[in-house]
Write a protein that binds this DNA or RNA. Sequence first.
DNA 1: CCCATAATTAGACCACCATCTAATTAGACA
DNA 2: TGTCTAATTAGATGGTGGTCTAATTATGGG
Lengths: 102, 102
Amino acid sequence: MGLSDLFRALGDETRREILRLLTRGDLTAGEIADRFNLTKPTISHHLAVLKQAGLVQDERRAQYVVYSLNTTVFQDLAGWLLELTCSGPGSGRARKNEPGGQ
Amino acid sequence: MGLSDLFRALGDETRREILRLLTRGDLTAGEIADRFNLTKPTISHHLAVLKQAGLVQDERRAQYVVYSLNTTVFQDLAGWLLELTCSGPGSGRARKNEPGGQ
DNA sequence: CCCATAATTAGACCACCATCTAATTAGACA
DNA sequence: TGTCTAATTAGATGGTGGTCTAATTATGGG
């Protein structure tokens, strides 16, 4: 739900690679697991983390569970980025800050 | 250096709050520490993590160490975001992906 | 030189996390 | 129903991370 979950989810190389794979199209859990030198339970865990962070969605289809990107959350990320980078020096014009100041 | 360091650094609420403070202007380590209910060593640790990730810079000024935002890294983040969101379905037009499809 | 202040480093502690193997649930089908 | 495949959950383990207290380094002023 929160930004911490989001960033922590993105802080793992394997999970970012999963996201990259999903930009090419939806994949089942097994198809994803086949791309890595990790066990299925480990990948299942990573998928759960990504899902918890809202970065992916899953949908049961027969025996398979199909995962897909949730691009909505990336907008939240972009929003956070903008808010941070546009509210500081550059928008308001900052004064050179002396250590003793206030 | 890497994206993992960057995201992991951003995965902590305290560190994001430090970044937000720094958008208002440069601050000394002590001034930053005063804003939190945490000890100075803890804040010092967080600042080291942010510095390691390239998110802040520090500069010794007399007895003080002044910290400032390094906005360059946010461009890396924005670049990563764009690359991920623009290389998938939406730029190339994706077909609905059936599970059995290779 | 010695002391006071600013900040970091060292070391310990507990929680969380990535990973594995083994066991369990879910669904299809004969 | 029984069994096969897909996927997750349970439980264990080693490593990392956030926090603290205590000790150490760095700087300026009498």
